[in-house]
Design a binder for these strands. Sequence first.
RNA 1: GGAGAGAUGCUCGAGCGGUUGAAGAGGCACGCCUGGAAAGCGUGUAGUCGCCUAAAGUGGCUCGUGGGUUCGAAUCCCACUCUCUCCGCCA
Length: 423
Amino acid sequence: MLTIQLIRQETEYVKERLAVKNFKNIALVNEIIVLDDNRRKLQLERDDAQNEMNSRSREIGIAIKEKDMAKAESLKNETAELKEKIRVLNQQHDDVVAELNNKLVLLPNLPHASVKAGHSAEDNEIIHSEGAIPELGPDAVPHWELTSKYKLIDFELGVKITGAGFPVYTGLGARFQRALINYFLTEAVKAGYTEIQPPLMVNEASGYGTGQLPDKDGQMYYANEDNLYLIPTAEVPVTNIYRDVILKAEDLPVKNVAYSACFRREAGSYGKDVRGLNRLHQFDKVEIVQISTPDKSYAVLEEMRVHVASLIQGLGLPFRVLRLCGGDISFTSALTYDFEVFSAAQQKWLEVSSVSNFESFQSNRMKLRYKDAEGKTQLAHTLNGSALALPRIVASLLENNQTPDGIRVPEVLVSFMGTDIIK
RNA sequence: GGAGAGAUGCUCGAGCGGUUGAAGAGGCACGCCUGGAAAGCGUGUAGUCGCCUAAAGUGGCUCGUGGGUUCGAAUCCCACUCUCUCCGCCA
C-alpha cells in the first residue's frame, strides 16, 4: 500500500497518478487524509492522558515505598475517571486506525512516470519486438492436437483425476517440463540468483504481504482446515521471506529464483482462450525476485527484462515486449513489462512473462526495510518476474517447431531432453 | 494425536507486581591509547506512532500474539501461535 506520508505530502501527484490507473474513487484520498488527521488528534489526547496516568502510578508507587498508605489510597481514588477517559480514547483511536487501514489498502500503487493512460490491453505499448514469425505449412495444427498426437499431455486424464485445467504430462511431455525448468533455473543461477525451493502453501499474513489478500482471495485455492492458501506464484513465499525484516545495505540487491507449481482458480474464465495450455489451474513457473534500494530499482527492472529476453532468445521464439498501460497494469505494480511469444498455429501472441517493479508498495505492507548509509531505516523496493511460465512456452514451442518429422527441440534443451526431436 | 518444558533487544542471558525499554556478557560502531595492531579503557548500540517548521528535545506503544486483573504487568490470569523433549503414527 501507499505510505500515508506520500499521500499527505504529494496529494495532488497521488491523485494524478491514480487517475492514470483509471482509479475511480479519487475522493478516497481526501477521506484518508481526514481520517489520518483524526487519528493524530486522538493519539495526542490519548497519549497525554496515558502520560498523566503513568505519572500517577509512579507517585503511588513512591508513596507505598514511603509507607504513606493514606496518600497512596487517596491517589488511587483519583485515577478512576482518568482510566475511563483513556479507555474511550483508546477505543476511538483504534477504530480510526482500522478504518484508515481499510481505506488505505483500497488504493492501488501509483504507476511510474513512463506508464501511459489507457483502458485495456489494446492500449499497451509495444516497446520491442524480435524474431521471425515462422511460416507453417498448411498441415500445421495447434498444440492441443500435437500434445495428443505425440502423447505429451493428457488433458482428459487430468479431468478424471482432478478436473479441468490440471493436465497430466506424460513421457517426453513430462521430460519437456523438467528440461525447461532446468534451463530456466540454470540460467538464473548463472545470472547471480540464489535458488530457493519455497513452500507451496502460505498463511494469511503472506498472502496479505504481497497483495493477494484481501482482494484476490477468490483466485487462490484455500485449505479451510488449516487456514492456508495454495500459492498462485512463487512470488508470494519468496518475497515473504523478507516480511518484517530489516536488511543491511550490503545485503542488497537480494536476487532469488524459485521454481514452483502455481495454482490459480481462474474463476470466471471461459471460452477459447482457455483451450489447451493457454489457461490452467495448475502450471509450472520459474520466478525471479529482487529486492533493491529505491535508487536502483529501475536499473534492476531493466536487468530483469534483459534476463527474460535472453531466455526466450535461447529458445528461438519470436517475442515482443509490452509496457502495460495504466488500465492494464496490476493493482500492486508501478511498471510492468509483459513478454509475449507468437504462437504460430493459433496465430496469436501469448503472454509468458510479466516483469514488474512494485517500488515500496509491497514492502510497506510487509515492513520490508533496509538500513541506508546513514543508518536510517527505509522501505526497500521489490521486483519480480516470470522467467518463465511454462505452459504457453510449451504451446508455442510445439506449434512453431512442428515439422512433418516431429517437433524440433531447441538446442538449449537437447541435453536436458536427451533428444533433439520429439516424435 | 498424548505428556511435559519454554518463547525477553543483533546474540547469549538476568529479571517473576512499582521510575525496567529492560541488569550482565558477547558482538558491532566510534573515541582514547599505539609507529601500526592486539590488549586495555571510555562512549554508543531496537522498532514504531505522535508533539515540535527542522535539529534538539519530548510523550505513547512494543519483553511470541491477542485479551484480562491492577493505580501500576516482562513479571499474575485466560486464549491462541510457535519452538524444544519424550511417547504414538509416518514419507
